[in-house]
């Protein structure tokens, strides 16, 4: 998937992946896509909850060799 900015949140525990995602989204303009890579297994549910609450759609969630990859679109 195409993305405009990438965030490496590997090795970070709750709530840092979410807090860093929020900061990274602030640098994007509406419609741009952020790719986030995390290793915290809790981030699967947390990223969905963050997307639901903030209205920035979570386009895709996948798992690639123990990494969780998320694509979020800035609303």
């Amino acid at each position: 998937m195409q993305f405009d900015k990438e965030l490496d949140a590997r090795g970070l525990s709750c709530p840092l992946p979410i807090l860093k995602t929020k900061k990274a989204l602030a640098d994007l303009t509406s419609g741009q896509v952020l790719k986030v890579t995390a290793t915290d297994p809790g981030s699967i549910k947390d990223m969905q909850a963050f997307a639901n609450q903030t209205g920035n759609p979570l386009l895709e969630t996948s798992e690639e060799n123990k990494d969780y990859v998320f694509y979020l679109k800035k609303k």
């Binding site: 709530p15 807090l19 929020k22 909850a49 903030t54």
Partner: peptide, 11 residues
């Protein structure tokens, strides 16, 4: 601190 920072990030 965890709940406050996360809640703030969620608007």
């Amino acid at each position: 601190l965890i709940l406050a920072s996360t809640a703030a990030a969620m608007g």
